[in-house]
């Protein structure tokens, strides 16, 4: 059972930690680093609730080991809003379109939409909606999520 020292940046802050080889990135972010906005639904890659941004890409953090994130830059939902509480445009769109109910799936969805809308070539609303296939919402609020995605892609819902 190996132990590893990892150095990474989370929401702009450097972190250094010693982790067991088998620790998932999601458990590391929640338990060791305290970013409980990373929600763990299924713990085996099905639901998308645990999605975070690793080096610019939206990935499922339960399908990655913490040790694999050594040297990377991570953004969780805690890293999006401004210090004064102003919401990130993706969060604002989700709010405006009533795209959440219980909010459990929301951080994952927000991170996918954030990663994609940060891309140099702006994705269309359809592309954003397609990427929602990687998320399950048990409150079945998909229409609101879809509207938010279409809006962020610059398309009318």
């Amino acid at each position: 059972m190996s132990q590893h020292q990892i150095n990474l940046t989370i929401n702009g802050r450097p972190h250094c930690s010693t982790v067991e080889g088998r620790l998932t990135l999601s458990d590391f972010l929640r338990g060791d680093a305290g970013y409980t906005g990373v929600h763990v639904g299924c713990e085996h890659g099905v639901c998308g609730a645990c999605t975070v941004i690793v080096d610019g890409n939206a990935v499922r953090s339960c399908l990655m080991l913490a040790v694999q994130a050594d040297g990377s830059k991570i953004t969780t939902v805690e890293g999006l809003a401004a210090d004064d509480g102003t919401l990130h445009p993706v969060q604002q769109a989700m709010k405006d379109e009533c795209a959440l109910q219980c909010g459990f799936c929301t951080p994952g969805i927000v991170m996918t939409l954030t990663a994609l809308t940060n891309c140099a070539n702006k994705p269309s609303g359809d592309t954003l909606v397609q990427a929602m296939s990687g998320h399950i919402c048990r409150c079945t609020g998909y229409q609101g999520i879809k509207r938010a995605a279409m809006k962020l892609g610059g398309d009318a819902a």
């Binding site: 998932t24 990655m64 080991l65």
Partner: peptide, 26 residues
């Protein structure tokens, strides 16, 4: 062997796979 892990990680989490050593080739 661990590459992208998108199949292996669920198998590890469900303990359907319990290797002694994981070799990350990425």
């Amino acid at each position: 062997i661990l590459a992208g892990g998108q199949t292996l990680m669920p198998l590890l989490a469900l303990r359907m796979s319990q290797p002694f050593i994981l070799i990350d080739i990425t």
